[in-house]
Design a protein around this nucleic acid. Structure first.
Lengths: 209, 209
DNA sequence: ACACAGTATGAACGCGTGTTCATAGCCTCG
DNA sequence: CGAGGCTATGAACACGCGTTCATACTGTGT
């Protein structure tokens, strides 16, 4: 049984490796990144990495797992603070999650793109978490359809809710692919804009306030 | 100067390699796929691959380039056939491109995800093509805003068109991540649905026909 | 029947990979 | 001061990588 690499004295080194992994995996992809590049980026030798992570895969999992923790926390908090009305909930969720993705472009890109390189068990656990996020958006859409604030009936498909929630989620999750921090639009403007666009997709009546 | 591997007698072998690359790159990612796996999947030895492609990278480029050719052709044809009205154009583009992505899940996923592994020159040429597609959608949205069939003014941002066109494009491009060919919704239903959702995003007045 | 171009082989090449390990330094605690 | 746990080193490991090459086979055109 390998060393568990716990109880370390300098968690900053672990954090530095985490951060370098974030940058390198984001730029070159997980399997396009070598442990030596990782070590160089932290001013370490390859061997030292293994005092903090059991393997390269373990680092990837730490990265992906953490950002999912943060996402879950954010979405939970947002729902808890928002009112009970589905329209307000949807707008708040889309805006908050957009801001989240703008603030963490590396984390979210690696999580979305490279989680397939995780070993089966860990990958499944991530896939399950992502499905729960999808379900959360779909539930809000269904609640709004029930109380009349959203409408999907005229779309011709018996479950347009899935397509609509995926449209919203993909809009939000991929914002960092085009958003330019140096551009004219601020992050919070863009977050608010995505909240409004989500309401358009759900065809909320009151979204032209 | 290396052999150019042209004028081959059996283009089917080249095609078999192309197809195996499609499947393997899709499943394991480009740099997660081995030339030996590629050869096994075609009942060849590794060396034989090089009679048909100059390198593993050349195969990736062939794959990515071809699907971009097809996409460009499809979008051009769609625009040519559609009426002059921006709403009809947008709906037709979104529907046709959705059907395209449902029909080619491997091609589009590899193109979207693994084009970063291309050498700089080829990667740039791909990036340029993708920007042209973005611009095509943005142009239709702007045309519709001009003639009054779309409206973005109340969204509070001076250029909500970019966000809206990215929302539409991401909805379309990522359809294969959730669409289930064995599910209750047919591909053409989903394509039509995406056409309608695109109109919702652009807030076309006449989309509730 | 012969020549030749296209194609596949299988062994090999050099190199880079993720990972391990014996060693040594450092820092804290007794 | 001395003991012991944490951490970094740098060399090494076994292995798999993309690619090359001499060779042989095959099928078509003359």
């Amino acid at each position: 049984m390998p060393a568990m690499t716990v109880n370390e004295r300098s968690p900053d080194t672990r954090e530095r490796i985490h951060d370098a992994g974030l940058t390198l995996f984001n730029d070159r992809g997980y399997s396009g990144t070598t442990v030596r590049e990782l070590a160089d980026a932290c001013d370490l030798t390859p061997g030292a990495i293994y005092n903090h992570y059991a393997s390269k895969e373990a680092l990837l999992f730490a990265i992906v797992d953490r950002v999912h923790d943060q996402a879950d926390a954010l979405l939970g908090d947002t729902l808890r603070v928002a009112s009970r009305e589905p329209a307000a909930q949807l707008e708040a969720l889309a805006a908050a999650f957009t801001a989240f993705h703008i603030a963490r472009p590396r984390e979210t890109r690696v999580a979305n793109r490279d989680y397939i390189y995780l070993p089966a068990g860990e990958r499944d656990s991530i896939v399950r978490r992502r499905r729960r996020v999808r379900a959360l958006f779909a539930d809000v859409l269904r609640a709004g359809e029930r109380d009349g604030s959203f409408s999907f009936g005229e779309l011709g498909s018996d479950d347009a809710v899935q397509a609509a929630s995926m449209a919203i989620l993909n809009m939000v999750v991929l914002v960092a692919e085009w958003f330019d921090p140096a551009g004219p639009r601020s992050a919070s403007d863009t977050a608010a804009l995505h909240g409004r666009l989500a309401l358009r997709i759900a065809r909320a009546q009151a979204d032209s306030r």
